[in-house]
Every structure is written in C-alpha cells, then in structure tokens.
C-alpha cells in the first residue's frame, strides 16, 4: 500500500494516541470522507487494527461504545519510513489524551 501524506498523518495520529475516528479528524484537520477510508485501507493493509471499547466505559457515560484503532508492527515500520519521507510530518500531530 502506498503511504500518502494524509495516510501518514492519520497513522501518526493513531500512533500518538488519537485513536477514535472523530478525534483523528479534529487532530489532523482532515474531513470524515478522507479519514475513514484511510482507516479502512490501513486496516486492510494490516497497519492498524480496530477494536470496540469496553462496554462499561460507554455505559458509564450513557452512550454507545466507540471503535478505536491501534497501530500494528507493520504500521510502525511504515510510519518510520513516512517520517523520513515527509520531514515536517512529526510536527503536525500533538497527540490526544483520549485512550481506549
């Protein structure tokens, strides 16, 4: 899979703890029509995996459970290549306190 700049941004965001879809949009500034297809492609390529958060978390907040994403080993390797390829990439994402 070819890692484009938006794909690299999304991968970086997930690696820095921005794990939920809407939070990734807020952190990267990308639109939903961009972020979600990237997440799907990354998951198909094996660079991220997705999970549902613990039901108890959602129940406590009286809302439906959310799906979160994590970077895999393959994704980490691709991310390192992307950081070399796109020098300014690292400064684009600050990280997020949201954890699954």
């Amino acid at each position: 899979m070819r890692v484009t700049y938006p794909t690299a941004i999304v991968l970086l965001a997930v690696s820095r703890g921005v794990v939920y879809g809407f939070d990734i949009m807020d952190a990267t500034g990308l639109q939903s029509g961009t972020v979600y297809p990237i997440l799907r492609r990354l998951e198909v390529a094996g660079m991220v995996r997705s999970r549902w958060e613990a039901v108890t978390n959602a129940r406590d907040e009286q809302r439906p459970p959310r799906r979160y994403y994590q970077v895999t080993g393959a994704g980490s390797r691709e991310l390192r290549s992307a950081l070399d390829k796109f020098p300014g990439l690292s400064a684009t994402i600050a990280g997020s306190p949201a954890r699954a």
């Binding site: 809407f22 949009m25 939903s32 029509g33 961009t34 979600y36 297809p37």
Partner: peptide, 16 residues
C-alpha cells in the same frame, strides 16, 4: 456535515 462524509466511507466499504 461530518455525517455527510460517511457516504464516501460507505461507498469505499461497498466497493471493497
């Protein structure tokens, strides 16, 4: 407005 972008996501999943 964010939900409107779900069309792209849905089409990607359908195509894939």
């Amino acid at each position: 407005l964010r939900c409107l972008g779900a069309v792209v996501d849905a089409l990607w999943i359908r195509r894939h």
